[in-house]
Each structure stands twice: as C-alpha cells, then as structure tokens.
Simulated scan of single mutants.
Amino acid sequence: MSSQTYTAQDFKSDQYVRWCPGCGDFAILNSIYKAMAELGVDPSQTAVISGIGCSSRLTYYMNTYGFHTIHGRAAAVATGVKSANPDLTVWQFTGDGDCLAIGGNHFIHAVRRNIDINIVLHNNEIYGLTKGQYSPTSKKGLITKSSPFGTIERPFRPAELTFGARGTFFARTIDVDTKGSTDVMGAAAKHKGTSVVEVLQNCVIFNDGAHKEISSKEARAEKTITLEQGKPMLFGKDNEKGLMLDGFNLKVVTLGENGITEKDILVHDATTEDNTLHLKLANMTGPDMPVAMGVIRNFATSTYNDELVQQIEEVQAKSKIKTFDDLLKSLDSWEI
C-alpha cells in the first residue's frame, strides 16, 4: 500500500469509453475506479488483464499496466503475471462467456491454485460482443440468436464452480449498486488468494432486463440480502425478515411472528473453511428466497504465489548451482 492518497481520476486512462449507451459495464468501471482509489495501491503497481468480450475492453480504460489477451486465456495470463511479479496487484475482468466457456478450465484451475488475483466476472447471461448467442449462464429456455426456440441447456452457477474448485473468496453484486460493487471489489483485493466477484450485469441490447427482478432499489430491499461478516442475516425494507435453518435448508422468517426475534436469525461468518452454508447462501432460489449479495465466502489460507516464492528460495539455498556456469559444469560433458 502507498501512503499517497488517490482519486478515481488517477486510474482513468485517456481513452474514450466505448460501450453501448446504458450498458452495465459503465457502472462496473466506475466502481473499480473508486475501489482502486480507496485501496491506495499505486497505478504502477496494478495490472489489469482481460480476455475477449464487451467486458474485456475495460483494460483500455485503466491508467495501469494492462494486457488485453485472447478469448478465455485471461486467467492463465493473470496467473503468469502474478507469479512473475508477486508485488503487483492483479485484476482480471471477464465475461460469463469468456470466463466460463472457452476459459472455464483456466478459471477453475486459477481458483484451485489460489493464486492471488482478483477475478471480476461480468454476468449478463449472454454473448454480447458476438451479437446475442446464449452463454453458459443463460437461463434455460432463453430465446437467443443461437437458441431461437429456447436454450435447452442448464446454466452454470458461478458460485458452485468457485466452491467446487475449492475457492476461498466469492462475492456477488449488481451493476446498478455502485457502492455495493465498490465495497466487494475492495474486499476482494484485500483477500489473499483468488477472489471471485460475480457482477450481475445488464446487456441493454441482447438481454435487457436479465436481472430486472432485483435491479430497482425497492426490489433489492425485498428480494436481496446483503451479507455482512458477524451480522444477523436480515433483509427487507425495514429489516423485518431474516434467514434461519430449517433442518439442512434455509428458510425466510419474519421477526415478531411465532415469537421469532433477531437472536434467532443466523449470523453470517464468511471465514469458515467449511463452505456448506456459503454454498446454500449463494444458491438460494425460489419466490420467497432472497438473492445473496456482498461477501459470501472469505476464507484465509496459503496462496500459490507465496508458496512458489518460498519453494524457489528453499531450493536455491540448498542447491550447489549458483550460476549458469555451475549449471553447465553439473551436466555430462565430452571433449572433442
């Protein structure tokens, strides 16, 4: 961290921002500017990596190091950047197609390794740049250019993939909630290990209204729950509803009914190694269940890059080979 104070302007490049008017990417970009300014990491110590897609244009709009890579390969490049220069703060911006289709293998292995990078997954449930084909997160039945009669595929849920790959950090936000997005991106950057932030994003051209059930302030109050570490899981306009366990399942209850008080409500703990409850929170579905927002999982453990550096130092300390000449002389050789 630098002792210097930064503003969002310090992280803006001089490039004109080119997305469709009304695209959720604008809000995500503004959130990351604010998050980076609040983190206080110098732009010269920051690298932004992206793949291919509308979201991946974000690299051009950052006054940081950047690499606009090829389709699906951002996680591989980000892993290399962090491994080669562990002091850099490395961000990966990617879409649901770029990350979870052609890039799915790189994604799960970056998460499994727990490399210290921050993956921001723009999830608009559609391929936008290639003009409206269904993506790995498109809802079953969605009519698109590549599924004119409705897709018959079941979608990925990013949280399930992250937890299945033994992910240590998962958070969710929505593009229109810039403060919430800024907060979770800041938390992601402070986490040591692979951080995955799913941003529910609107595509005004090819999948407008994908998240309309929760996009308005009124809907977010009633149909989402913002999880906070160490606090009861309350939601609703007046925090009058909460979550409790019913056997192995979560259920919504109303304070005051059947003698239920705030003391009966589950308290959020994102830091536990056991991700059973984290997964249940991330995957809540049904007409009465809220969509979980905020930091859902934040478990601390060793990182790939730290262990890599440690291993290299240990091997070097024990090795008799200190120079290139030492290496050559250690091999079989013949005089001709």
Rank of each mutant, 00 (worst) to 15 (best):
T59L: 00
S135N: 11
Y33G: 00
K190L: 11
G40S: 02
V48A: 04
I115C: 02
S146R: 12
E307F: 15
I336R: 09
A221G: 07
E273Y: 05
R166V: 09
F235T: 08
L142R: 10
K231G: 08
S147A: 12
E218Q: 11
G97E: 01
I49D: 02
S138G: 07
T323Y: 13
L234Y: 03
K12I: 08
L327G: 09
I119V: 15
M293Y: 09
K190P: 02
A27M: 05
N114Y: 12
M36F: 12
L100Y: 05
R154Y: 15
A219I: 03
E313R: 15
G128R: 07
S333C: 14
I225P: 01
L58H: 01
A188R: 04
V204T: 12
G230I: 07
V295G: 02
R57N: 13
D183F: 09
M244G: 02
S195M: 08
R57A: 02
R297V: 06
R18C: 05
R73G: 00
S215Y: 10
L227D: 00
D238N: 08
N123A: 08
T261I: 06
H268S: 03
G294M: 10
N207I: 00
K139I: 14
S2V: 02
L255Y: 05
T178D: 03
A300Q: 12
E228L: 04
S319F: 13
V48T: 04
S44L: 14
D306P: 06
K237S: 13
N30I: 06
C20D: 05
I32D: 04
G259I: 04
G80K: 15
P158Y: 08
N124A: 00
K131G: 07
D246K: 14
D42R: 04
E262F: 09
D326F: 13
G247M: 02
F26G: 00
G164W: 11
R172C: 01
A219M: 02
N239Y: 01
T144M: 04
K179T: 08
R73P: 00
G242F: 01
E313G: 15
N114F: 11
T151V: 11
S31Y: 04
D98L: 00
F149T: 09
H71C: 01
V41Y: 11
Q4C: 05
D208W: 03
L58D: 00
F93K: 01
K320G: 13
T64S: 06
I28L: 11
N63M: 08
S216W: 04
D288T: 14
K12L: 07
A270I: 07
L277S: 10
E273D: 06
V77C: 11
A270L: 13
H278F: 01
W91L: 15
V252I: 06
A110I: 14
T168Y: 07
K263E: 14
S302Q: 13
H68S: 01
K145I: 10
K217C: 06
F163C: 06
V41A: 05
G51D: 01
V41K: 13
V184Y: 03
K318S: 15
G236K: 06
D183N: 10
K212L: 05
